[in-house]
């Protein structure tokens, strides 16, 4: 039981995440991909006569059930399957974050940075609003996210997905190493 409550190592979690691919293919002929759910939400709620959102989102509603499930899964895991320990991070990262005043490791997301009050600061605005915008805009522009391209796309050996995955990494490496250190000092 204790090993369930502890964080799961990559060689357990990774292969299980990989099994999502055949699970969805065999359950209903669906390609694994999460970011399109954001498009379906737009199509369902605010289509605004935009061509890109003019399609029958109900035919894709499986994707909305999937993300609803992810939300519930997050709830179950945090309520029932977690030990009370904090997130253990690499000492180099811990040292760097301490210099920005980030010392709370009790949640998966640092509460000192991600909270409603910090939305009015430049730091909080860029992390949450600008960051979120890039995630939504970028994934749709790229035609997929980590699940759609990096896992499903690579699993079916599609080279455009490899290009997209490399670009995800390049963008992330650049921001994490050159932009975030400046931003978090604010």
């Amino acid at each position: 039981m204790d090993s369930i409550l502890q964080p799961w190592p990559w060689y357990v979690a990774g292969p299980l995440i990989g099994l999502m691919v055949p699970l969805l293919l065999l359950a209903g002929n669906k390609s694994f991909g999460i970011s399109s759910s954001l498009r379906h939400i737009c199509a369902a709620c605010i289509p605004a006569d935009i061509t890109f959102f003019k399609y029958d989102w109900r035919k894709e509603s499986w994707n909305l059930f999937l993300v609803g499930g992810i939300f519930i899964g997050g709830m179950i895991a945090s309520q029932l399957l977690m030990s009370s320990g904090s997130v253990v991070v690499d000492p180099r990262l811990q040292k760097e974050l301490t210099s920005y005043g980030v010392t709370d490791y009790s949640n998966l997301v640092p509460q000192e940075l991600f909270n409603i009050q910090s939305l009015v600061t430049i730091k909080g605005f860029v992390l949450m609003i600008v960051g979120g915008f890039f995630v939504g805009f970028g994934t749709r522009y790229a035609g997929g996210c980590t699940s759609g391209h990096s896992i499903m796309g690579l699993s079916t050996l599609q080279w455009p997905s490899l290009v997209a995955t490399c670009c995800f990494m390049l963008g992330g490496i650049f921001v994490a190493n050159f932009i975030l250190p400046l931003l978090l000092q604010l």
Binding site: S37, L108, G131, G132, F168
Partner: peptide
Amino acid sequence: GGLLFGCGWALTGACPGPLFAQIGTGA
């Protein structure tokens, strides 16, 4: 789009799937 999403991933620490999971954990 890939580069833009990468930037957003580093800022938010989340791709679209994890966003839903993070909210589920109470964030």
